[in-house]
Computed example of a mutant assay.
Amino acid sequence: MFGTGDLFLELWRRYTRAAQLEGFAEFADAEARCRRLRALALTVVTGLFQVPDYAWALALAAVERGAITRAAAEQRVEFLLTRQQLLLQKSPPIVHAVLDESCLARPIGGPVVMGKQFDHLAELAARPNITIQVAPFSLAENLPFTLPVILLDLPDGTVIGYAESQTQGHLERRRQTVAGWEREYDQLLVEALPKAPSLALIRKARRELAP
């Protein structure tokens, strides 16, 4: 209406990202353009796969700890749901996610919320562009990463990596470093449970939820 193109949309996105970790905004821009996304989730389900109640439980816990404000929590969850539209677009990227078994064992939000989350994971796993594997506890010290990692294949053929610590995110563009992450991720795919056993473990966790 004002003839400003995407200006207000971009300003809104930047405002929303104010609640995110340092370094996350640049990653989110790249994620929105990626053709393939490979993720390793440790402790909690990767953001793109979280149902709203699960995301809210994590955000509100941060508020209770005094780590973020209520307003920041609302912005964080709102932006996460916006990012998840990536999976609903007409030509979504190929997504391959490895969930550490701890993601299934930690009852974020309680049984009801986890039930919704498990059902959502099963639904996502049935989509042709999404593969979900579980890295079992039995991998022990052979799990190659100690932080959650995401690899993005961009339209120009480049691959970038993203990792988060407790206080900030880091976007990795150095080809040698990213190639090393890719090798480690490829090895992880071999050692993680295949698709069918991974889905069976997710469904088993769903059945074992406390009533």
Rank of each mutant, 00 (worst) to 15 (best):
206 R>G: 02
34 C>A: 15
29 D>I: 15
70 R>F: 12
24 F>N: 11
112 V>S: 09
184 E>R: 13
164 E>V: 09
42 L>T: 12
118 F>Q: 04
12 W>N: 13
211 P>D: 10
130 I>K: 05
125 A>D: 09
151 L>N: 04
168 Q>D: 05
165 S>I: 03
189 L>H: 03
12 W>P: 00
150 I>K: 08
138 S>F: 04
27 F>A: 07
129 N>P: 00
208 E>F: 10
124 L>K: 07
113 V>E: 06
131 T>G: 12
91 S>W: 14
82 T>R: 13
36 R>V: 14
27 F>D: 07
90 K>S: 09
33 R>Q: 14
200 A>K: 11
80 L>I: 12
137 F>A: 02
47 G>S: 01
49 F>E: 12
134 V>H: 03
48 L>A: 05
93 P>D: 03
79 F>C: 11
7 L>M: 14
26 E>S: 13
12 W>M: 12
197 P>I: 03
61 A>H: 10
27 F>G: 07
72 A>F: 03
31 E>G: 03
144 P>T: 00
151 L>E: 02
21 L>Y: 14
22 E>Y: 00
137 F>C: 03
143 L>C: 11
107 P>Y: 07
134 V>K: 06
144 P>K: 00
172 E>P: 01
186 D>S: 09
14 R>S: 15
128 P>R: 13
58 L>T: 01
54 Y>C: 02
119 D>P: 04
127 R>Q: 14
99 L>Q: 07
133 Q>M: 05
109 G>Q: 05
188 L>V: 11
152 L>W: 01
112 V>M: 05
45 V>H: 07
70 R>V: 15
53 D>H: 07
137 F>I: 02
81 L>Y: 05
191 E>H: 11
26 E>F: 07
154 L>Q: 00
48 L>C: 06
135 A>D: 04
198 S>M: 06
184 E>T: 10
199 L>G: 08
124 L>M: 14
197 P>L: 01
152 L>K: 05
119 D>H: 04
26 E>G: 12
175 R>W: 02
170 H>N: 12
8 F>V: 08
118 F>R: 01
111 P>V: 01
196 A>R: 11
103 C>P: 03
34 C>Q: 09
8 F>L: 10
174 R>E: 10
108 I>A: 01
200 A>D: 14
133 Q>N: 15
155 P>K: 00
148 P>N: 00
48 L>G: 08
42 L>H: 14
19 A>D: 01
113 V>F: 04
69 T>S: 13
211 P>M: 01
148 P>A: 00
130 I>W: 01
25 A>K: 08
177 T>C: 01
20 Q>R: 15
164 E>G: 12
186 D>P: 03
44 V>N: 14
3 G>Y: 01
19 A>H: 07
